[in-house]
Structures are given as structure tokens and as C-alpha cells.
Design a protein around this nucleic acid. Sequence first.
DNA 1: GCTTGACCTAGAGTAACTCCAATAGGCTAC
DNA 2: GTAGCCTATTGGAGTTACTCTAGGTCAAGC
Lengths: 125, 125
Amino acid sequence: MRINEASARSGLTQDTIRFYEKSGMLAPIRRDARGWRVFNADDVNWLTTLERLRATGMPLDDVKRFALSAHASNREAPEERAKRLALLEKHAITLAHRQAELEACKHFLDHKINIYRTSLEVTHG
Amino acid sequence: MRINEASARSGLTQDTIRFYEKSGMLAPIRRDARGWRVFNADDVNWLTTLERLRATGMPLDDVKRFALSAHASNREAPEERAKRLALLEKHAITLAHRQAELEACKHFLDHKINIYRTSLEVTHG
DNA sequence: GCTTGACCTAGAGTAACTCCAATAGGCTAC
DNA sequence: GTAGCCTATTGGAGTTACTCTAGGTCAAGC
């Protein structure tokens, strides 16, 4: 498939896919005679994984480390797998913090909204 | 108080406070004889509100709109209050979406972690 | 044969900070 | 009294992670 479909399936924009490839987070994608990228199912799976990691807010540098390990020649060696696991675990903790923070902010927001709603009701009614 | 204390109390860095003032999200802060900013309790309350809005991910442009309305001469008029309420409500919806997305990503992450943990256990043990 | 459309590249622009260099007033220490 | 240090000031450069633009290729359709 071409970049348009890869984009639709992975949830990344075409620009982002090209940017990730340039940044070394993708093994260089094969090209057809015209020089157009040709993606296979594995490529799209990898793009989807990148999208999920980024959606949780993992910094690009960590995603790069993850990618580097996942594409290393000894990627199945226990130490490489442990490295990737460590990155994911570290990130899971960050994500939990972020969720707690958002929950607190949500309360602040709801509180503010209530104040505005109540005062506007009083003003009008 | 000076910018150092205002920063500590609001949770914004000194750079961010200066940046917000330059961007017009704060009424210009008073200065002492040396030209240093002097913050009062109201200033800090406002900074704290800005910090909370940004922590939820409200875009700066919307925060600016909110600030503009909150500092308008008719800021207590119902239509201005309604404007601010609308901004908060719009943002509450965005925030709820974001929370749902993070929750989904958390599942993805936990799932990946489990796969790695299991396979490493098998490998080692 | 000319336009259209999907793609290509390099590079500029954006959001929201964050950091840096150069400058200045005031305090203490010798 | 002046040297060093602290806390501030400014303008402007740097950062992250894209996002957009300009200019170009190539195959297909009319």
C-alpha cells in the first residue's frame, strides 16, 4: 500500500510518517520504480505502535530508543527485550501521574464551570 | 512579592510568567524602583488559574481569549461571563475526550508490558 | 499534449515554552 | 571602596514534535 493508506490505517499523518522515517524510527520503507514508499502490513503495525506510544505522551527520544532496540540485530535477546520493557514500564508510571493530574484539573474545571453557571442563572433568573 | 515567589506559588516558571505577560495574558505587572516586577495576591491567583487551564491542555489562544474577557472593562456583564463559560465548557469536553484516549492508551501499554513480562519470565525461567 | 493527482524533497513555520548572554542594582566581605 | 554574588532585567536563540509550503516528478485520463 502507499503512504495515504498507511496514514489512514496507523492514524499518523503522511508528514509524520516521513518525519519518523527521516528520524530513524522506521527502517527505511521500500520504494517502487517512481520512488514512492510501499508499505506492508508489518510496516503499518509498527507505525501503529509508534502512534500509540506517542499518544500516551512518550517523548520522541524514548520512542527512538524503543525503535532502536526493536530493530537491533539482537532484538529478541533478553537484554534487548528487557530494555524495551523498562522503557514501557517507566512510561506507564509517567502516564499514571498524568492521568491523576488530569483528573485533578477536571475537578478544578468542573468547579469553575459550576460557579459560572450558578452566577449566570442568578443574573438571568 | 517578587517573581521568584510568584513562580513558586503559581507553579509557573519565571520564564513562563514573563512570556505570559509579554503575550498579553496578564495585565502588566507593577514594577519597583529597580524595574523588578511586584506581584500581589490577585496576580498570583490569576497566574494559578492560567496554570490550571494550561495543565488541562487548553491551547494558549483560548487561554488568551479567556484572559481578554476576564480583563475587559465589562468583564462582569452576563455576555462576557457567558463567553468565558463557553470556553470552559468547550474545554471540559476536550478534556473528557483526552482522558478517554489516555485510558485506552493505558490499556495498550499494560498489554504490551504484560507480553514482555511473560516472555522474559519464560526466557529466564 | 495538457491537466490532474498522488507522491517526492528540502526547508520554513508553529506552539509553548526554555535557555542563554549581556546587563544592572544591592548586599556582604575584605 | 571594590570585588564577588544574588536576583532580577532584556532580547533573542534553541527545543520538541510536528505541520505546512514551494517546487518538482511521473503516470493516467481527456
